[in-house]
Design a protein around this nucleic acid. Structure first.
Lengths: 188, 188
DNA sequence: CCGATATGGCACACGAGTGTTCCACTGGCT
DNA sequence: AGCCAGTGGAACACTCGTGTGCCATATCGG
């Protein structure tokens, strides 16, 4: 407990490196350790002191991503209410992951690898299945396709958001609108 | 004309290298020239004979992509009929680009760089504007967002297709269904 | 004040990818 | 046969990222 993972100087710089890694890798999936160290305002030596390998750094980033992912899923209350509403809520919370979304889509870290550990993937599957069963989702679509629409739309939203030219509110409203229209069961 | 770009042995191996580059770079955006040469069943020396630089190879790939892109756009007849229908047609033709889509999304090749030259970007913009004006597209959406939905859905469809687990016909039908529902103007 | 901890800079060795050069081989053509 | 374009392989030098070790410096707590 004297050297906890989040205590004092060690914890602070560790987090700084991790954050910088997410930022730098999102901007360039092949960013060198030197670039990451620079982004963290840290010497490359120090980076190696915390993460001996590039692989270990990536693993730590993946773990961090998994944590954020399951936090966002928790905030979305995936188990509550109609399936479609749960998915739309998760759109909003997942959008806050920011650069982590870029990392998942550029496959620097795999969604399955860090999401499955904490049951996130399972919760999302369940929400899709529930939505197809409770009549809120279009049954002409596969559960897998529904998830795919969610992720690709999320990526689109984050791209627009990162661009900075569209106000955050407009992005969210257009995102929710298109996803709902695309996935909702037909009126008749 | 004795040494045209597509004539005889030189043209054939050039095309083989280009195709292999698309394949290899789609699978791994950081593929080495050696890997590309292997994929083309060609010595690395030969590859350098055709494309002295890695940059030149990438430029050639981009040009090829631009050509394919504008061909697909032509087949989709972007200027004909209601805007929404034109976009749905382009979904189908663009899906045939295959690995080239992966290259565009992994930003090995930028859509703007190779698409703008041939007026493809312009034609797509026009189709979106026409759709918003003729009442086939949902006017609550931005033209930019409409294009974004098109591309991200296209990426989703190609991902499923490449996976190989879903039959081609099912992918196309789900793709067209979700895109149409997402972008179509509301019934009332 | 002093020691422990954390950090930064520097230098080194190592491997991978790249671009170049040179030479040998094969095929088709006259 | 000889010629020649096209090709493949080996060798080389160069760059860049990586991982390691060492030493000087700063900062915090006693």
């Amino acid at each position: 407990m004297t050297t906890d993972i989040a205590t004092g100087a060690r914890g602070r710089t560790r987090k700084a490196i991790l954050d910088a890694a997410v930022r730098a890798l999102a901007q360039d999936p092949a960013a060198s350790l030197g670039q990451i160290a620079d982004a963290a305002d840290v010497g490359r030596t120090t980076l190696h002191r915390y993460f001996p390998d590039r692989a270990e750094l990536l693993a730590a980033v993946a773990q961090e991503a998994g944590q954020q992912l399951s936090d966002a899923a928790g905030r979305a209350r995936l188990d509550d209410g109609p399936g479609l509403d749960a998915l739309l809520r998760s759109c909003q919370t997942l959008l806050q992951l920011g650069d982590l979304l870029t990392l998942m889509f550029s496959e620097v870290v795999s969604i399955e690898a860090c999401g499955s550990e904490l049951g996130f993937t399972q919760a999302l599957d369940d929400a899709c299945a529930r939505g197809l069963a409770d009549g809120t989702l279009d049954t002409r679509l596969t559960a897998g396709w529904v998830q795919g629409v969610l992720w690709s739309s999320l990526y689109l939203g984050w791209s627009e958001l990162r661009e900075g030219t569209t106000p955050s509110h407009d992005v969210v409203s257009q995102l929710l609108l298109t996803v709902r229209k695309a996935l909702a069961a037909p009126a008749d």
